[in-house]
């Protein structure tokens, strides 16, 4: 696979393209003992094909819950979620695993690479779970690492790589199954400024080549790189770019 990808095949001339993510009145309630905590209180959100969306919000606002639901790591209490037109809110754990494997590429703040595996094996993991034959798997994983400039690091373990390189490996892993959506949770949170610039440039590149990206961050300058920003406050969505620092600061809780 390569980073330079043509137009999305699902975009048919003259028709409104189907959104990748279509959330409608999503609510999520956690019960902590006898107390019910409403993390999301009716969130509706569309992410179109090829879009680069940043979700911001202070900690405790519900943005993590929202990200988990978009990533099919968690299921909403009520509301519908169509991922590329398919309702995932009623899927079984097995079906959700399949969706996570094929449709979504995750990039985590902690990189979440398995320390005992080489970069190549780490990138191969999603292909392993997709049932791709071993030879094909290695070829595709190598291509993904090559495309991210890590062709000479394939046999290194995560501990032998810098933070920026580790995040590149995890981006390669997110891309290797050619997902519909790249979901990045604070991808620069653990990186120094040089590596942050590097990874953000990589995201720009992915966006330019047609990938759909949803990025969760609390950093302003990171969010500013995206095409559109939404903010989560107290379980509700606030649209638009005009999220000033004062409200952001006021929203931060312990």
């Amino acid at each position: 696979m390569t980073l330079t990808q043509g137009g999305d095949p699902r975009v048919i001339d003259g028709l409104d393209p189907e959104p990748i993510v279509d959330l409608d009145e999503i609510r999520k309630t956690y019960s902590a003992g006898s107390v019910a905590v409403e993390a999301l209180r009716g969130v509706s959100l569309r992410v179109d094909v090829g879009e680069y969306l940043a979700i911001t919000g202070p900690s405790g606002s519900g943005k993590s819950t929202l990200m988990h639901i978009i990533g099919c790591l968690d299921v909403p209490t009520s509301g519908t979620y169509l991922l590329s037109g398919q309702d995932v809110s009623t899927m079984t754990e097995r079906e959700l695993a399949h969706v996570r494997n094929r449709r979504i590429g995750f990039v985590f703040q902690q990189f979440n690479l398995l320390a005992s595996l080489t970069a190549l094996r780490n990138v191969e993991l999603p292909l392993v779970y997709a049932g791709v034959p071993a030879a094909d798997r290695a070829r595709r994983a190598l291509q993904a690492l090559d495309a991210l400039g890590l062709g000479d690091r394939v046999d290194h373990r995560p501990g032998q790589l810098s933070g920026g390189q580790q995040q590149r490996v995890s981006v390669a892993r997110a891309l290797v199954n050619d997902p519909d959506l790249i979901l990045a949770d604070e991808p620069t949170g653990n990186l120094d400024s040089v590596a942050t610039r590097d990874v953000l440039a990589l995201f720009d590149e992915l966006h330019a080549s047609g990938h759909t990206i949803v990025l969760i961050t609390h950093e302003h300058d990171v969010a500013a790189r995206s095409g559109r920003q939404v903010s989560v406050r107290d379980g509700l969505l606030v649209h638009g770019e005009g999220i000033d620092d004062l409200t952001l600061a006021a929203g931060v809780r312990g």
Binding site: R94, H98, R100, P126, Y129
Partner: peptide
Amino acid sequence: IREIGLRKALGATPAV
């Protein structure tokens, strides 16, 4: 537990 979570996020089914 983290590794299990990650494997699940990458598409491992409960059966796997």
